[in-house]
Design a protein around this nucleic acid. Structure first.
Lengths: 242, 242
DNA sequence: TGGGGTTCATGTAAATAACACGCAAAGTCC
DNA sequence: GGACTTTGCGTGTTATTTACATGAACCCCA
């Protein structure tokens, strides 16, 4: 057993890629590290896992400490365990991503951060540790999920317009979609409830508001669906912000 | 840093779900544990990760010790870290699955096993640790992969018939497929090379042999494809072995 | 109060992909 | 050489996906 105990010299952490959606693009919540190593650099929020804590709980805790949110969509993606990924010892990390409604709350930097801030996915620079790699893996996973589960909705406010929903898909999939085909497809899934309300205060014809049908939503999350739409030939999504 | 070091009391392992395909059904390679805990029970092959070893390397090592094979399809699935999943301490495990050509080699039980043996997926009973859960997660992942990457081929011998290929898909997807549609679809992918050879010694019309086109294969592994065929109405796969 | 600006909402025809289906040919076995 | 088994193809039918344009609703401002 002595030999066995030699192995118990490592630790593990969770890192959480927190996605939000705002102003038409996809964002990640990053923290500015308040402690060494990598002090002052941007990083994914994460923490060592407590001895009596499950991985999922740890990921949920990190999220809650930072945002105050519970009961949020949270999915484990992968473990990262390169030998030297952490300068202070052998630490493997388990990556999670979560989807939150960005408008729902105020970010309160946790103890381990000086600052927490949303970054557009396209504007993320070099992060601490191997966090760029982790971020990328989580983003790829999200991209894939969006095509087979209706998880996109987790990112939207309770009431939304079809155009907002389309912009969300376009941002995640990095593509442009045909409006009519998008609507036809999404409406045919019986996933949306027409609220008989419209936007107010917009300087143009107001759009109808929808919410998603909870039961149907859960069914589709469980069973999966297939959302495949070809990139629109006519209106490729602009690579530049307006 | 003292506090930090309190965390370094845990270990991590890899467990490897090794899939093979033979006699028309999907198999997993299990070991009979030669040491406590769970001595004598069937389990997934796995091992603690050495202090200077990457996760992927560890998974590859486990596989090689058991089968002698290198350069095999290997994919990480998930980490499992329930607090009490290991009776001797906090050990989280990272699950991998690999796909091998079952006929290629002889199983040689590694040091940690008394015995290694192929089990049909349907005949797996209670395993050590949380290995049933892990096995299931890996199987689900494989099922999903098969629909978007041509990984199925990793399980077949270098030369195979279309019928064998179809049986493989049916076994993994647990479904029955229409022969003609299956052929049409798979041939239209330009993935197969007709070897101009036929089976020998079979008591019926011999089938043509194919191999898969390496380049095209790699391209499709990278880019993905979509293999969706509806379950055949006429010949649902029999739930019972012949 | 009406004209300009902007976004919303919608339907159809053409092309493509998926589906169900049956029969002749190529071998082995006896 | 006749019976048996499995292979290997092609086609009509149906469902899905694609491309595409115009009038309607609302705000703002002159």
């Amino acid at each position: 057993m002595t030999e066995f105990n030699n192995f118990f010299k490592s630790a593990f952490s969770v890192d959480n890629v927190i996605f939000g959606f705002d102003e038409g693009d996809l964002k990640v919540l990053l923290i500015n590290r308040g402690a060494e190593p990598y002090k002052g650099m941007w990083a994914l929020p994460g923490d060592l896992v407590y001895p009596n804590e499950d991985l999922d709980s740890a990921a949920g805790r990190v999220l809650e400490e930072l945002t105050g949110l519970r009961d949020v969509y949270l999915e484990q993606v992968n473990a990262f365990g390169a030998v030297n990924r952490h300068p202070l010892g052998r630490v493997i990390t388990v990556a999670y991503y979560s989807l939150i409604k960005i408008s729902n709350y105020v970010v309160t930097p946790a103890s381990f951060a000086q600052q927490a801030k949303w970054h557009s996915l396209g504007e993320v620079n070099t992060l601490a540790f191997d966090h760029n790699e982790i971020l990328n893996a989580c983003y790829q996973r999200l991209k894939q999920r969006v095509r087979t589960r209706p998880v996109g909705f987790e990112l939207l406010p309770p009431k939304f317009t079809l155009t907002e929903l389309q912009h969300l898909y376009e941002a995640i999939l990095e593509t442009g979609l045909d409006k009519r085909n998008f609507r036809k497809k999404i409406l045919s899934m019986n996933l949306l409830v027409d609220l008989d309300e419209t936007q107010e205060g917009v300087a143009h014809r107001p759009a109808k508001l929808y919410q998603f049908a909870q039961e149907r939503y859960e069914k589709l999350v469980r069973e999966g669906f297939s959302f495949e739409l070809k990139e629109s030939k006519r209106k490729p999504s602009s690579p530049l912000p307006a």
